[in-house]
Each structure stands twice: as C-alpha cells, then as structure tokens.
Design a protein around this nucleic acid. Structure first.
Lengths: 203, 203
DNA sequence: ACCTGAACACCGTTCAAGT
DNA sequence: ACCTGAACACCGTTCAAGT
C-alpha cells in the first residue's frame, strides 16, 4: 500500500520523507541523493522527474520546517489569545523543542544547503509565512501598548534572531543537551524570553 | 617566495588560506579538498599529510573565525574600558561586520560542516575563547551593577544567541544586505543592542 | 619527512531507451 | 508520463612508490 503509492504519484513526497529520515540518521552533510533514491526504492535518476536538483529536494525539506514553525507560532497565539508575552514565550519554547527534536532540519534551513534568497517560490513563501506569524505576535503586543513601538520589521528580526540563535546552539552548538532534555530546554527558553522582554539592564 | 614556502613547512597554513579564499568565491558547499589542493599547487593526496580529513581542514578554518571573534571582543573591551553597554554594542557590531564580510566562514562555524562537540582541541579552545571573551563583558556589567544578576553562563548564551542569530540572517538569510552596506549593518546592530539592553517591554 | 600517481568506491547529473 | 541503466566528470580517501 505505502510502497505501491510511491509509483503512482507520490514519489515526490516519499523522497522528502525519506530525506528527512536519513538526515536524522547521519546528518545533512552525509546525505546523498542516490542514497535517498535507493532508500525510497527507486533508481538514482528518478528524483530528477520531481526535483530539478539535489538542492531543490533540500529546499522542499526546508519548506517543511518553516511551515512547521509557522504552525507552532499560530498555535501559540491561539493558546494565549490575550497575552502577547505568553504568546512569545510559547512560540519560543516550541521553536526550541523543534530544534532539539530535528536539529538537522534546522541546520539545513539556515546553516547552508539552502540559500533563502535564490530559492524557489515554495521555500520563499514558507520562510516568509514563518516570519510573519511572529511579526503578528509583536504587532499585537505593540497595539496593546505592552511592547515598544520600534520598527516592526526590525523588532521581529531581533526577536527571531534571539530564539533562532539559541536554537542553533541547542541544535548543533556547544550545548547540545542530553537527548532532548526537556527541562533544560524549557529553562533556557524561559530565560531567553525573560531577557528578550526585560533586557539585560537592571531596572 | 610565497610559493616556495608552501614546500618547506607552510603547506598547512597555505591550505587554510586557500580554502578561505575559495569559500569566498563559491561557498562552503561547493568546496572540494581536491580543488583546494590543486589551487595550492599540490597533489590531491598532499593535504592528508597535514589534516586527517576534509573535516579537519574545515575545523581549522572555523578556528580562525572564532579567534577573530575573540580578538574583536577583547578590542571592544579595551576601547570602552568603563562602559559594559558600549562594550557590548561594539562587540556586536564587530561580529555583524565580520559576518557580512566573511559569510561563508560564519556559515561554516555554525551552519554545519563542523560539529563543535566532536571536534579537535584547537577548535574547541577557539570556540570557548570567543564565548568567554563575551562572558567577561557581561560579568563586568554585573559586578558594576548595571546588568541583571542572572546566571552568567545563560546570560552570555542569550546575548551570544541574539547577535549570532542576527549575523546568520545577515550572512545568509533573507536580508543579506547589498554587498556590505555598512550603514544598514550598523542600524541593525544598534537596534539589536538596544533591544538586548532594554527589552521588548514598554517601561 | 613530505609529496606524487594511480586506484577504489562513491557522488551529482544527463540521456537514450524502456513501459 | 514516469522510470531505468549506463555513462561522464567529479569527489574523498588510501597506499605504494618516489625524493
């Protein structure tokens, strides 16, 4: 059933899934297109019917990651409909847990292997969607008078940078936690959120 | 002179320099060890006398990057010996300019291609040195009573994350500026520093 | 001690040919 | 329309052999 699907129209998605799984096993760096093809039960040339490039397949995987982040951000909004601070905290924590869960996808999304500027529409839109879902949280905070009214785009950028930078460290940095140590991740996320909200300065 | 050096003891450094230059031309992703060797005027097997691996060469390049950051941080300290806020701002700006100048080295240092946990001593020490030079700034801010007294390591981490996340965006993100647009970089760095110091919250 | 040349297994990509 | 098999140029790495 699953297998036969591969050969009547779903090869594209099957290749994406296989790539994600293999990346989880031995990293983006060591991922070869031939391996993905073989593992999906298809010849080395078959992927080229669905992706222009190896890069195009990687872009598709990165898009999955960005859509996931957008979904988490939206979820955080709905969970705390009236509290932008808690929305931010929830969104940040979700991002961090995602990074701990799927470090290789995060590495792919930003690290390299995908360019984010000379890329296809799918990835472009997925990335912008994720960014805008965060901007919406900040904007709401501004309109409620709890956040500063600096330039929205730049504030979003700085916020994203903080959480993303932390997730990079978690995903592949010096402080990769002992296999998804949930408590440690929460502690870090909460600290980062507090610092983001209140700043370094003593009041 | 330079060329003859390559063949009496300096091949190691020559390979590092060549790799950095080639990365600048066409990115880490497309960098091959054979190409580095050829470009340094040496056979494909020669690098293996000086580096265990292709990965080991990349680690050496990443180390160069971390040492550069440490130096910038120290410089920022000396420039404003009595003002931790300005130290932080100067360090952040230097990091951002470095990222704009050598995006591929930044991509290598964090993006992937170097693991930072299963790595050689040289890289380990270089990375820790960079981290600690930042921690020193924060610590001084705490002891002068201008920064909050949260856990030093975590505060350093969050600070580093903010600046690093921003530099990632600059280096290879959606907002790569028009070839080292210095004014834009400064504006971003200043905004990030302000947000870092004062937080998102309206006072 | 340091480097070369040839070799091995693998890779991305293309293309004629099959169904 | 979608896939295969064989081919091309390239890659990382090893190793005997050269100086």
């Amino acid at each position: 059933m699953t297998k036969s699907n591969y050969h009547h129209g779903d090869l594209r998605n099957s290749l994406i899934d296989t790539a994600i799984q293999l990346m989880g096993e031995h990293g983006v760096t060591r991922l070869s297109l031939r391996e993905v093809a073989k593992s999906a039960g298809v010849s080395s040339a078959a992927p080229y019917r669905h992706f222009r490039d190896k890069a195009a397949l990687l872009e598709a995987v990165a898009s999955v990651g960005f859509r996931r982040i957008e979904k988490e951000n939206s979820g955080a909004c709905e969970k705390f409909p009236d509290d932008p601070c808690e929305q931010l905290r929830a969104a940040g924590l979700a991002y961090l847990h995602f990074a701990a869960e799927e470090p290789e996808i995060i590495a792919l999304m930003f690290g390299r292997g995908v360019s984010l500027e000379n890329c296809g529409d799918e990835l472009q839109q997925a990335a912008q969607g994720a960014f805008q879902s965060l901007a919406r949280i900040i904007e709401k905070g501004q309109s409620r008078g709890v956040f500063k009214r600096l330039e929205l785009h730049d504030m979003t950028l700085a916020t994203f940078s903080m959480v993303h930078g932390l997730s990079m460290m978690l995903a592949l940095g010096p402080l990769k936690p002992a296999q998804s140590d949930s408590a440690r991740i929460n502690a870090l996320g909460n600290l980062a959120t507090t610092m983001l909200l209140e700043g370094l300065l003593e009041r």
